[in-house]
């Protein structure tokens, strides 16, 4: 177990280093002078030279990578080109908004467990069939469409829930989280319910469950004994994989709902070609995703050692 964990963590660090280097290589391939691109065509030569000097653009590629990583080790992610503030500070300021959105999405996703279990127990019944169709639809439809329809229904027509901003004060913040969370989370409720249903059906057909039934142990008790053991690994796997998609959707959802956060920050940085901020957000989200998938992998191996061989 320990050896596996160490190996898994080394691979994760390698992935993060590779990802950042890849981004650097991409910047090298940008057509034209990056200083030109960042400052626009009307910048004076002196301004461009100063920027080039500041971002080490005049140095060789390897030297630039060295500067970036050595800065990174000291917690220095560079400086925002427009506001001159350190990127790390901005990231820390925006992270809680995105983190709360991701956390509430993950929580909502757990709703898939009871839905999937009920569908599996009443297999081929009305609920099973209906939830199957609804789940597949929710899995398929892009979060942007779900988000817009939610706004139309709950904010524009019913005027029940706020659709703009992140709110202030505990109750307001919660209310402002509802629609964005559903916009991202409905998809994953669908996924988890399908997966839990599938694993439950598999387990319910196994010999030890049949034996337990034959001994006259009540259905309720059998379910209680197996539900979590079956549902947890499936759910953790899905959630581990989903973190990346949830963050992706967060970009769109934050913009649709005018919420502050990492996604909105990145979008604004892309529009204004603020490279240091783009780099910082990409790095932060990659680290976050790689950490999340690693943790979910390790948790899974702890819960079910057989999965070790599959990874």
């Amino acid at each position: 177990m320990l050896a596996y964990a160490v190996q898994r963590i080394i691979v994760s660090i390698l992935i993060i280093i590779l990802a950042v280097t890849a981004l650097f290589v991409m910047i090298q391939f940008v057509p034209g002078d990056p200083a030109n691109v960042m400052l626009g065509p009307r910048a004076t030569p002196e301004l461009k030279e100063a920027l080039r000097e500041r971002l080490h653009l005049n140095d060789a590629f390897i030297v630039q990578v060295y500067y970036f990583f050595s800065g990174l080790m000291q917690g220095d992610l560079g400086v925002d080109l427009t506001s001159n503030r350190p990127v790390l500070g901005i990231l820390i300021e925006q992270a809680p908004f995105t983190a709360s959105l991701v956390a509430s999405t993950l929580l909502v996703t757990l709703l898939g467990i009871p839905i999937g279990t009920y569908a599996a127990v009443h297999r081929d019944g009305f609920f099973d069939k209906a939830s199957g169709v609804v789940s597949v639809s929710l899995i398929a439809v892009p979060p942007i469409v779900i988000g817009l329809y939610l706004i139309l229904f709950f904010s524009v027509s019913l005027q029940l829930l706020p659709a703009i901003g992140a709110g202030e004060g505990f109750w307001e913040i919660l209310l402002h989280l509802v629609l964005p969370t559903l916009a991202i989370g409905l998809t994953w409720i669908g996924y988890v319910s399908r997966l839990v249903r599938a694993s439950m059906i598999e387990v319910l057909g196994q010999n030890h469950v049949k034996t337990a039934r034959a001994f006259g142990i009540p259905n309720q008790r059998i379910l209680r004994a197996y539900v979590l053991r079956v549902a947890l690994p499936a759910t953790i796997t899905v959630l581990g994989v989903s973190i990346g998609f949830i963050l992706s959707s967060a970009v769109i959802v934050e913009i649709v709902f005018s919420r502050p956060g990492i996604g909105k920050l990145m979008y604004d940085a892309v529009i204004s070609r603020n490279y240091p901020v783009v780099m910082g957000t990409v790095l932060a989200s990659t680290v976050f995703i790689v950490t999340a998938t690693t943790i979910s992998d390790l948790l899974n191996v702890m819960l079910d050692p057989r999965t070790k061989d599959e990874n």
Binding site: L18, M26, G244, L247, S248, V251, I252, V270, S285, T286
Partner: peptide
């Protein structure tokens, strides 16, 4: 493969669009 998969699609897309 795993490195490429660890980028969230839309964030990767934004980074590429910022550049190209």
């Amino acid at each position: 493969f795993d490195t490429v998969r660890s980028f969230p699609t839309l964030m990767f897309a934004l980074a590429v669009i910022a550049l190209f």
